[in-house]
Structures are given as structure tokens and as C-alpha cells.
């Protein structure tokens, strides 16, 4: 999977490394901004009220 991505990136090693880093950062951003906020309410830490709103 990662080998396949690496082979399909353009440029020399440094350019590829830079693009990989950007890809990783983009993935982390999407996770923190969209995926985790969606998944977090599935955990029990939000239930602090007694009328279950």
C-alpha cells in the first residue's frame, strides 16, 4: 500500500518525501477536523446530564 503510493509519487527522493509528509499532514488534519469529532460522541464521556439530552 505505502510502497505503491511511494512508487507513484513524482520527482526524486526529496520531492517524494516532501509530498509524503504533506499527505500525512493532510490525513491527520482530516482525521482531527472531521473523523474524530464524529467518532468521539460514540464514547461515553459526553453523558453528563440526567435527562439524556
Amino acid at each position: 500500500m505505502y510502497g505503491w503510493i511511494w512508487r507513484h509519487l513524482p520527482g526524486n527522493v526529496w520531492v517524494r518525501a516532501l509530498i509524503s509528509l504533506l499527505l500525512v499532514l493532510a490525513v491527520i488534519y482530516v482525521l482531527f477536523q472531521y473523523v474524530f469529532p464524529w467518532a468521539e460522541p460514540l464514547l461515553p464521556f459526553n453523558d453528563v446530564t440526567v435527562d439524556n439530552q
Partner: peptide
Amino acid sequence: SELCITVGTLIVLFVAYV
């Protein structure tokens, strides 16, 4: 193996998030 590493990293990131 790559999948396992990915899932592990995801879990660590999620814990860090929470």
C-alpha cells in the same frame, strides 16, 4: 502488516485527540 501499523497509528491519534 501495513494495515496493522495504520490501525495502530489511528488509535494512538484518536486517543491523543480525545
